[in-house]
Simulated assay, not measured.
Amino acid sequence: MAPRTTTGAPRLTIGGLPVDALTEEEVVGHVVAALRRGEGGHVVTPNVDICRACARDPEVRAIIAGADLFVPDGMPLVWASRLLGTPVPARVTGADLIWSLSEAAAAGGRSIYLLGGPPGVPCKAAQVLRARFPGLRVAGGSAPPYGFEKTAEGFAAVRESLVAADPDIVFVGLGFPKQDRLISMVRRDLPGAWFVGCGSAISFAAGTARRAPEWMQRSGLEWLFRLASEPGRLARRYLVDDLPFALRLLVVCLVKRLLRGRGPS
């Protein structure tokens, strides 16, 4: 039987990373309940690229080891859980959580902070989210310059702005592992806040980047949509690195399931 975490849901191991068997609604409920208790946390949304990076680099894996929730962003992880015979309820993405957690924040009088994206994008995303969820408090936003984390001054400026804003929920869209490295370094300054590594979610919310149609999201083809949108940046990542890893992951999970079924009679 899979171990259970403080959420009460099973925690599986898929692709070498923990994955919590939670729905999006359950993630939101867990975060809201924790905020009421004054407890903060860190949500990681693993996909194939994150699994591959963690498998290759122990330092990268250690960055997210202290996170509180791990929910599958990538459909291959959902398929892998089914092949293992321990299916997770659904895919839960940062691009969806930015909406559902912002809705919960508005309902509960909580504040959010948007960190990441090109200049002007956090402000635009804030406008869209406020329009969707009247009463939502946006404590602030920031679009750090490229390479900010490489200097003590650049990192300090981002940290000071975030701490001064004192938000309840922080969406960090800087890409993995940069976003989760920053979270691991600043969450001690805001122990009552929840941090969500959300990739391109801020740009999606702002409408400055297009997300794949829902049918492509459901069928596991969102990567193909993104590849067609940014072939120069994503071709190697998706076709050379991630696709072979995903295929190996699914084969390994299937073999584990078959071997388990052929156990001692």
Rank of each mutant, 00 (worst) to 15 (best):
G199R: 00
G85I: 11
G207T: 03
V32P: 00
P231Y: 08
I98C: 05
M75V: 15
D73F: 02
L83R: 10
L190Q: 04
S265Q: 14
P18Y: 07
P3V: 12
R132D: 09
A53C: 10
E39T: 10
L174C: 06
L114P: 01
R36I: 03
V44I: 14
T6G: 15
G154A: 06
A131F: 03
R237T: 07
V172L: 08
E230A: 14
R181P: 05
E160M: 09
A33S: 12
A246G: 12
D189Q: 12
A139S: 13
A2W: 14
R56H: 15
F225R: 04
T13L: 15
D189W: 06
F133H: 02
F155G: 10
A143C: 14
E103D: 13
A139L: 11
V28R: 03
L97F: 00
V48L: 00
R233K: 12
R82F: 10
V170C: 00
A205P: 05
E26F: 04
L247C: 14
F204R: 01
A246M: 13
L129W: 01
W223C: 03
I50S: 06
R218V: 04
G147L: 09
G66K: 02
A67E: 05
S184G: 07
L162S: 04
R91S: 07
V158N: 09
P18A: 06
L234M: 15
A126T: 00
P134I: 13
T7R: 00
V44W: 01
R137H: 05
G8M: 12
P134S: 09
R226I: 12
A53P: 03
C51M: 14
R11T: 13
D96S: 14
A95S: 15
S229V: 09
L83F: 13
K178G: 06
R257Y: 11
V44M: 11
R130A: 15
E103A: 15
V48H: 03
A143D: 15
E103W: 02
I112F: 11
F133G: 00
G207H: 04
K150N: 15
R210W: 00
P244E: 03
F176K: 02
G147W: 04
L97A: 08
D20N: 12
E39W: 01
G116V: 05
P72H: 00
S102G: 02
A212P: 09
A228I: 10
L97S: 01
S100I: 10
T151V: 10
R159E: 13
W215N: 06
N47P: 01
K256F: 01
M1C: 11
G135V: 10
L224K: 05
